[in-house]
Nucleic acid binder design. Structure first.
Length: 619
RNA sequence: GCCAAUGUAGCUCAGCCUGGUAGAGCAGCUGAUUUGUAAUCAGCAGGUCAUGGGUUCAGAUCCCGUCAUUGGCUCCA
């Protein structure tokens, strides 16, 4: 059975003529009109039986209860299916559905007639839905969280907060000096878009052999080539180092959970995610969409005193999974499987939570900066309940001051999610698309839900306040930002480049002739002993071609080795930033590189040192 | 998920409108070349035209379904 369910302001229909012999007899085929009604178009299919009809009507009743409508019109509609049941069976089942809904104001439009109709469907998100119901689909209903269903009910107000703490309605704000904030504001509130081409990082992620789509997986689950894996793992390492330095304990937790476990059930309903579901041996498992579960369940095992707080757990989730709508997936910006650093801080009260929030705010800003993303690249949004604002005005204003630019504010009349405040930094890309990077939340519910407790100064048991921080946002998204920024450079006629510490090859050595190969081996060994990724283009190609290809790989330093270099103490270094050749002593050169990569993690080449041994990757 | 566009050699693309032997450049292989800062030369090899069906004497080409990608819509805790 296929049904299309519409919540309508009104429907009018007029039976015009009998379509089949067995069409229902009706006394006077005149126009009928109903208002404030749920219209369900129904196609009964081959194989449908009474159980299907029962199932269908109970699903319909279920959703009608949610939208608070008590009037139902069943509208037989053959066009929904190409596999229709016999008309006699269809009529019986339709009648059965109607009988089973007698607690509602129910009617049906005549079966077997051609009808004309006029309909006005309501605009709310739950107004329209279609379902396919078959004999064995009874238990197969999509698990959708209450939060996802209810999200549309949130009432919120959009404002802009300036550095002095004043708030004006978004419509009254002068955006002329804040173009990116304007983009973000319209993006978030009015959902305005203005794009008509693919984002440039998608071509770049392939051309630079970083990542690619994997047709053999689900969409949004990407493959990372050696270059991409290297870049990604360095960023992962860097973010992890910073969180550990801040005081997070790094842990690892399972990627799948039992959705019927008591602590999951209620969390589900506060967390509007679409998840991957897996049935295994009768268990209904889902793939995690955040690190929260694992860390909360673990926090539960710690015996916490107020003296231990704030207590911080951290995991870099590889991966978190969200089954985003297929049309929403793009390159590295929006994925179904992504790597998310997630740090939870358990605080003894709101005051401590706010102090901690500020520290993590600075941490997030600093991490982004070191990754090559500055304030000019992103805009801040902050969301809070009206109550929280009234009680913590100055803390909120302080965050805005720290950001140094006006901020988009969403104020909720009442708490709908599990948090009372959430801020995020949104990168605005070349096409005017906004994507969230760093974020932090003040969670006042989950400690209770997960039974996380600490003992306070008075020997009383309390639930901590939990902060949820991702200092960088998804790692894939950081790569997306770096590539979008590179694309912007290309557009402006500048040379795109990697931050040196992330470059898959930092130095390329090109021997002029075969006879210099040995010299190059020795030289590269000396360079790589200093934690620098260096390789040798030992292919039998012209010097011009090998330089061109190094340029196309965005390799910062090129060393051509010939007669002159072999007989000199100095190196001839072609610096891609300027395109000029400089003569530098060996140690001066090392120092120049090491200064630029200071404080960043290092890992060795992820490809063979000799280009002659590398199979080209065609993407 | 909905609407639309796109899918031809490992890669980038031409051919499709108007049906009749599948084309180029790059990459690969073989050989020559040993090169001084963004493409050395020649030869060879390489294609279930995304996939499944239909129309036709004949389909890369026309029609329908499916998958993937991209754009718009919806969504983004």
């Amino acid at each position: 059975m296929r049904i299309l369910q519409l919540h309508c302001d009104y429907i009018e229909y007029t039976p015009t003529k009998k379509e089949i012999k067995m069409a229902e007899d009706i006394e006077n085929p005149e126009t009928k009109r109903f208002e404030e009604i749920v219209v369900v178009f129904v196609a009964i299919e081959d194989d449908d039986d009474s159980s299907v009809a029962q199932n269908a009507i109970s699903q319909i009743k279920n959703s009608m209860e949610k939208i608070g409508c008590k009037k139902l019109l069943l509208y037989p509609y053959a066009h929904l299916s190409s596999n229709l049941a016999q008309p006699s069976i269809a009529m019986t089942l339709l009648k059965e559905m109607e009988d089973n809904a007698s607690d509602l104001e129910v009617s049906h439009s005549p079966f077997g007639w051609t009808k004309s109709y006029n309909i006005k469907v309501k605009g709310h998100p739950l107004a329209e839905s279609s379902k396919v119901i078959t004999k064995d689909s009874k238990d197969n209903k999509e698990i959708t969280s209450e939060a996802l269903k209810g999200e549309s009910k949130i009432r919120s107000y959009w404002k802009i907060m300036s550095l002095d703490g004043t708030m004006v309605n978004m419509a009254d704000f002068d955006f002329s000096n804040h173009k990116k904030l304007e983009i973000l504001s319209k993006y978030e509130s009015a959902k305005q878009r203005r794009v008509d081409e693919p984002p440039p990082h998608v071509a770049l992620m392939k051309k630079m052999t970083i990542a690619d789509y994997e047709p053999a997986s689900d969409s949004g689950n990407l493959r990372f080539y050696p270059n991409g894996r290297l870049i990604k793992s360095l960023i992962e390492q860097y973010v992890t180092d910073r969180v550990k330095e801040y005081g997070g304990y790094e842990v690892e937790t399972p990627i799948m959970y039992d959705s019927e476990h008591p602590s999951m059930v209620s969390y589900f309903n506060r967390f509007p995610a679409r998840q991957y579901n897996i049935d295994s041996d009768g268990k209904k498992l889902f793939l995690r969409f955040a690190a929260c579960f694992g860390q909360f369940l673990m926090a539960n095992q710690y015996q916490l005193s107020y003296k231990n707080l704030p207590f911080k757990l951290y995991e870099l989730t590889r991966y978190s999974f969200r089954r985003e709508q297929s049309g929403e997936l793009v390159g590295l910006r929006r994925l179904r499987a992504f790597t998310m650093p997630d740090c939870h801080s358990f605080c003894k009260d709101i005051d401590q939570a706010i102090d901690e929030l500020k520290i993590r705010f600075d941490l997030s800003k600093s991490v982004l900066h070191e990754l090559g993303i500055d304030e000019s690249d992103y805009e801040m949004a902050i969301r809070f309940t009206e109550d929280f604002y009234n009680e913590n005005k100055s803390a909120i204003e302080e965050l805005v001051k720290k950001h140094g630019k006006p901020v988009l504010v969403e104020m909720w009349k009442e708490k709908f999610f599990y948090f009372v405040l959430k801020w995020e930094f949104n990168f605005i890309d070349n096409m005017g698309k906004a994507s969230a990077l760093s974020t932090d939340q003040i969670d006042v519910e989950n400690a209770n839900r997960y039974g996380i407790e600490f003992v306070d100064e008075n020997n009383k048991t309390q639930h901590p306040i939990i902060l949820h921080n991702s200092p960088s946002g998804a790692i894939e998204r950081i790569i997306y930002v770096l590539l979008e920024k590179a694309a912007k450079d290309i557009k402006e006629g500048k040379k795109p480049q990697y931050p040196l510490w992330l470059a898959p090859t930092q130095v390329r050595v090109i021997p002029l002739k075969e006879e210099f190969n040995d010299f190059c081996e020795t030289l590269t060994d000396k360079i790589s002993a200093n934690n620098i990724r260096v390789d040798i283009d030992d292919r039998n190609e012209s010097i011009g071609k090998r330089i061109r290809e190094a340029e196309k790989e965005w390799i910062r330093y090129i060393l051509v080795i010939g007669e002159k270099e072999v007989n000199s103490q100095n190196l001839s270094i072609r610096d891609r930033q300027t395109g000029n050749v400089r003569e530098l002593g060996f140690y001066v050169f090392l120092k120049e590189i090491n200064e630029q990569t200071k404080g960043k993690p290092f890992t060795g080449l992820n490809l063979s040192k000799h280009l002659s041994e590398r199979p080209p990757l065609m993407v």
